[in-house]
Design a protein around this nucleic acid. Sequence first.
DNA 1: CCCTGATTCGC
DNA 2: GCGAATCAGG
Length: 173
Amino acid sequence: MNWTDERVEQLKKLWAEGLSASQIAAQLGGVSRNAVIGKVHRLKLSGRGKTTSSQTRSKKVNTAASSSQRSSSATVGHMSSRVVNRSVGATALQAEYSTDLVPMVTRTVTDVVVPISRKLELVELSERTCKWPVGDPLLPGFNFCGNDVGEGGPYCTYHSRLAYQPASDRRRR
DNA sequence: CCCTGATTCGC
DNA sequence: GCGAATCAGG
């Protein structure tokens, strides 16, 4: 892949937004984080104003979202990802996944506090990032939870709980 | 070990 | 100019 004007432009934009080099690389595709960093330096925009300081993500929690904590029929639907959250606060409270995608768990979701997801691109996933799908695979912006996985499973502790709850819960009713 | 950006240097 | 390898650090 070569640095077309468009790609350079997007690089500048994302870098200015405070995304890390690896995240930018993942979004652009076809380049490594090293390539991104190298390009950033050549463009001389290494000094990122004062925006989000990379690691140690912002702890800002979407206040609107944390309003009712439980039930609230979860905020479903794909909230045009992207801008929505760069915040990862492990304590964040909000369910963010498509009901269409996992209809069987929509009932149990009211019992579970789901942390805001990191919304990683497919290529950003590693063995320790939650692979719970977020959004519609057919629509742009589809990504994965990306939170740290629990006991080595494919999902973070929260999504594991969801996954383990069959539609017909065992606690008789 | 995970991740970050910075730097070097052969291509 | 490019980016892998490497370095320094949280």
